[in-house]
Amino acid sequence: MTADTTDTPMVHADRVSKSFGSNRVLKSISLTVKRGEVLCLVGPSGSGKSTFLRCINHLERVDAGRLTVDGVLVGYEERGDKLYELHPKEAARQRRDIGMVFQRFNLFPHMTALENIVEAPIRVKGVKKADAVARARELLARVGLAEKADAYPAHLSGGQQQRVAIARALAMDPKLMLFDEPTSALDPELVGEVLDVMKTLAESGMTMIVVTHEMGFAREVADSLVFMDGGVVVESGDPVEVLGNPQHKRTQAFLSKVL
């Protein structure tokens, strides 16, 4: 199934649309993310960025258009000329390879940092406990929290929680990482530590899609930037160019407020 040719884009959206009732949240979104690329999605709240991100790992169902991850259609299977809804088991299998980091961390509060990280590898992938623990410690060290393995989320700062959440996602060895406003719920002084981890991750060649309001991060790390508003892609391109010299009025208005 998996087309492993390097020129297959990691994410390819072709006129993706999504409505909640009569509210059209995504209107014909088309974009491509290449392997190893970092894409930043920016735009005002309610512009559909988060919804689009959630469509990529099928937390939301796409109503129209096509969305593929690594060449494989998300949430549906194509047989002949018909689309079949995926069985939840298959959808779960697709999600395994896509890591997601949430605005509010969503760590499991009844588990320690280490338990949070080993949970999915053990339960979902059937990794041996000892191996999972060793890998989790390695990941915790990578996000600079080696000594916090046995701490419960409630005893960690927001920035530390988000770094554990990143380690938890990485423990599944994803080929794609989605970040849904990962620093928006953090105290300003804690934003840096999370962005640093993300930057290192980007440098290691991970394919990432980041919904963010951190324009500095977008400029520095992103390979491309997409500005969304009202459910459409208004402008996209090289982040330095889009941020420095926005062509569209709406982009200009938005950037004048956030920069």
């Binding site: 937390l59 969503n106 999915a120």
Partner: peptide, 11 residues
């Protein structure tokens, strides 16, 4: 968010 997080992990 708890359900979302574990769903996203493939559980």
């Amino acid at each position: 968010g708890q359900e979302e997080a574990s769903t996203a992990l493939g559980m």
